[in-house]
Write a protein that binds this DNA or RNA. Structure first.
Lengths: 139, 139
DNA sequence: TACGGTACTTTGTAACACATAGTACTGTAT
DNA sequence: ATACAGTACTATGTGTTACAAAGTACCGTA
């Protein structure tokens, strides 16, 4: 009861589903190592944290979508540069299709007119209040 | 190891984040009861299942975003017709903003050119294979 | 009174982002 | 050399939530 439902949580839920797609999208444009990706995502207003990114990359690698190679850095330890495998490229294409369909569907849905449907009022009736919650009759 | 990473799962993850938004969007256009919503979502290529929808509606109701009233049906038990509260309307507006930003960011990201960045090859070097996974050097 | 349809509820499971803490390697200053 | 700070990667625990599946309750009809 008394649920909070803060907007940040819902927003992060929205990001969640497309993270994988976005990260593949970044890597697809050229080899990248994790901090690169975090940075690029932040620029694009799509926040990702380390604790999210690393497991995700590992998952994608184990699934055969990504490979990496070590590249030494002159400012710290070596880096894992990731790139898409052939399989990863195919997977990306599928996700792109999914994203396009989805975005399209959502936009259509939210722009639909305040159409018809004023509830057919079959017998808008008082039911026995068999549950204790708020039973207010809208207008 | 040998992760499966089936596309269906990822697709459902994508849907996941925007479900709440879509459902609010449907209800916003007029009172609706669960089966209505399932139907409308299916038409829009956005699958939702009962076991998902009911808890979601309850959550939104408990958070004060929705109310409902009972309406008798002539083809079965009475139905809960849901509608947005004032708070729910405000919440929806926020989510709409979030969605727009997000969709925008993703589209920009995925349409970015195969830009620059051929990895600065500082010292693309063979590192000691300190882990047993695949260390293949791309190309 | 039994039965099929519709509506709603409950419970368990798995996926996953996130927060946080920890390990390991690097170069630089003391 | 030794300590320290910065960077890169890893590991663990927690909370949220979609989904699956089974269950309960109400309705009209045979």
């Amino acid at each position: 009861m008394e649920n909070k439902m803060n907007i940040e949580n819902t927003q992060s839920q929205m990001r969640r589903g497309i993270l994988e797609f976005c990260i593949l999208s970044v890597i697809r444009r050229g080899e990248a190592y994790p901090s690169d990706i975090v940075e690029e995502m932040k620029e694009s207003k799509l926040q990702v944290l380390e604790g999210t990114l690393y497991p995700l990359l590992t998952r994608l690698k184990n699934a055969g979508m990504l490979t990496y190679r070590w590249v030494e850095s002159n400012s710290g330890p070596p880096r894992k540069y990731f790139s898409l495998t052939e399989q990863g490229e195919a997977f990306y294409k599928q996700l792109e299709g999914t994203w396009n369909e989805l975005a399209n569907a959502v936009n259509k849905l939210k722009n639909k007119e305040e159409s018809l449907k004023p509830v057919t009022e079959e017998t808008a009736a008082q039911m026995p209040n068999q549950n204790p919650e708020n039973e207010e009759q809208p207008q």
